[in-house]
Amino acid sequence: MTLLPWAIFFALIAFALAMICAAIRLLRGPSAEDRVLALDTLYVNCMMTVLTLGIQLGSRFYFDIAVLIALFGFVGSAAMAKFLLRGEVIEP
């Protein structure tokens, strides 16, 4: 009798619901900033789902995937936010 599989099940459902919330905001969001914020949230929730799957399967490979998702999520969100702010991503 262990608790961990049930906790993992609960956490995965919570992350799925959180991703649905973010996806609704992504589709509905009145302004572009709302959509970028929702996409950023989606990235972080996705990273936490991958980490939880890594706990469930007892494998360290999922950690590397989580690092990559964190890296690409930051680059994408920062580039989009910068574009909204300045109309240009890389300035001379």
């Binding site: 906790a7 609960f10 956490a11 992350f15 959180a18 919330c21």
Partner: peptide, 19 residues
């Protein structure tokens, strides 16, 4: 680990519901 996972799940869900 069970306690931490449940707490993390609830916090993330509330945070995203804030959206």
């Amino acid at each position: 680990a069970s306690l931490l996972l449940v707490a993390g799940g609830i916090l993330t869900l509330i945070g995203s519901a804030g959206l």
